[in-house]
Design a protein around this nucleic acid. Sequence first.
DNA 1: GTCTATAAGGGGATAGAC
DNA 2: GTCTATCCCCTTATAGAC
Lengths: 217, 217
Amino acid sequence: MSCNETSNNVSMRQEANGKAQTRIQKEKTAQIYAAALSVFSAQGFRGATLDQIALEAGMSKPNLLYYFESKEAIHTALLEKLVETWLDPLRALQDNGEPLDNILDYVKRKLAMSRDYPRESRLFANEILQGAPRMHHFLGSELKQLVDEKALLIQRWIAAGKIRDVDPVHLIFSIWSLTQHYADFDAQVHAVLGADKDPYADAEAYLVTLFSRMLQV
Amino acid sequence: MSCNETSNNVSMRQEANGKAQTRIQKEKTAQIYAAALSVFSAQGFRGATLDQIALEAGMSKPNLLYYFESKEAIHTALLEKLVETWLDPLRALQDNGEPLDNILDYVKRKLAMSRDYPRESRLFANEILQGAPRMHHFLGSELKQLVDEKALLIQRWIAAGKIRDVDPVHLIFSIWSLTQHYADFDAQVHAVLGADKDPYADAEAYLVTLFSRMLQV
DNA sequence: GTCTATAAGGGGATAGAC
DNA sequence: GTCTATCCCCTTATAGAC
């Protein structure tokens, strides 16, 4: 990955997605992704405007549309860019060590994602809340497959008597809902707890207690 | 509620909110509320259009705006109309009988709300997800007060040794997130479980297990 | 009270100069 | 590659006849 190209400033690199991009193009698209994440996650797709995204990205609206052909294209590309990272914590749920600890680690990692990447959480929440029009296929294929795979793993732990019997898929749903709640419904959490209160330490303690008591044999 | 008014078709009734309304006005506003609930919950505030609401309500757009002065006014009125009912299950959490059963009843009632009133759940989810611009004050006053009150009740149950020790406010948050998940993220739940699967029976069994194991002394 | 017609403005996207 | 100017549709809201 070192800069061993010639000084030709239209030197290209072949990207994973097949699009060739110069260094400047990469920087601009990165700025657009960052701005789009802020605006789409806060306002939803229809609520967001290209003006806001352009302002946030520090460029003009036509300049924005030089890099992406439409508002829709920005949104779709952003979702695709983020979705794999978003599932990494679940992928990391593996059969190594103590099953309960593996699950608690997953809970903690997912809660940390809510704390550290609340905009990503709200971006997906907005999309799914409105029926997932741009992620329908993904949810039914890749996500379903991953959940089924991890549900089998959990089922094996139950059968082996390592954790108590629960429905594995609803267990996964419950981890998602409990952890993402703190990012997605942040406004409500802070209205109840006070704007200054950081809920995450208490939340982690609560969730560790919850899953330990539910699952410990 | 029988029609014992005179045949005078401008006969009025004094409403709780102080607005006088004829029977026809009540019917029309009811139609508008029903349509607005469908459209706002599915599309969010910005995503919804008056055309859609008017179509759904079976009237023309100017006719809609004869009854409400703006799109914003419809949305605000709808939220205010629904929010009290939405909190009824939590209000019903009282100190009578067995504490664990009281909590399990609350969980079941809240899950039934997700099953029977998913549009209401998504309406509030949309609003809170985007920072609760129209409910900020309500969340910080009435909701906070109710949560604080019920947290005290739960704390008394813990102190009396009726249920195990947990953070009462996070317990309430967890009930909200676990139950509302099935309405708000319906698209994801059905993508994973299959479109035909009704998740609510399994969800109730799972949640009863979860809260029983966590709280039973 | 309800309609048709339309004003007024926002917002996505394009033209064309530089 | 980036800008200014602009097109044009969509959407909210109003005017005014009936």
